[in-house]
Amino acid sequence: MIKIKDLQKTYVIHKLFDGFNIVGKKKVPALNGIDLEIKKGMITGLVGPNGAGKTTLMKILAGILIADEGSIEYLGRDVVNTPDILNDITGWVNGEERSFYWRLTLMENLRFFMALFLDEWRDSDLEDMLKVLGLEEFKNRAFRMLSSGMKARAQLARALLKQPKILILDEPFTNIDQSSRKVIKEFLKKWVLEEDRAILISSHHIEELEDWLDKRYSLKDGRNTENTKTVMKGVEVFFTDGTKETIDMGRISRALGRSDEIRKCKLIKEDVLDENV
């Protein structure tokens, strides 16, 4: 559906002075040649630490930013320099609860953005979406009075109501409780299977989405890294007498013999190549 090749982006910060130093132009590289493919009917995950380039990549795909180099192929055409096309085909959840008008109600907010996003839309579509996302009874509540979880769901509703081909979700489940997450994940799983649709998602809690993703890309410092998964290697156990012992997962029972003497434990994690991805 979308093929990204060698995508590069550097932020340019124009600052004349920093204190008494003349700075001028400062360049901050964000993407250093990303390759990625978003396939029809699939949920693709982006994993990586803060600053890995996930949000930058998502903003480029949502048509908010323009990449410096590389290509984004959509329907056989390179659309990297045409943000309007990317804008048209994507719905973006930016993880920012501030991106609404807090003096307006939830319904007024969604109506405003619908009018902006679409040339024709119906209130009934909006009502249906609110029902699916469990927001129906809060539709007339001022946005500022909604809980963080409701605000997160409102972002999802706004993105879906745009009728996108590709749903871009930047930390969509932050502040959403477990049971609502399950409902939303099930809804999105069905949504993506409809004609010409795909989802790209980033999350810090990607391990929670592991069984939900069809494909996963790891990013670090604006580059693709090997597809990896995090595994538990063992536990560092700190005893009350000041000693510590590193125990691998298979031998944890040995430490449990001294369980009343344990002061604290620290999990040891390691990223390893995931051959199933």
Binding site: N87, W92, E96, S99, F100
Partner: peptide, 13 residues
């Protein structure tokens, strides 16, 4: 400052 500017620009407008 509201954080809505990017969202406005992602509209078909």
């Amino acid at each position: 400052s509201r954080g809505t500017f990017e969202m406005l620009l992602s509209g078909r407008i």
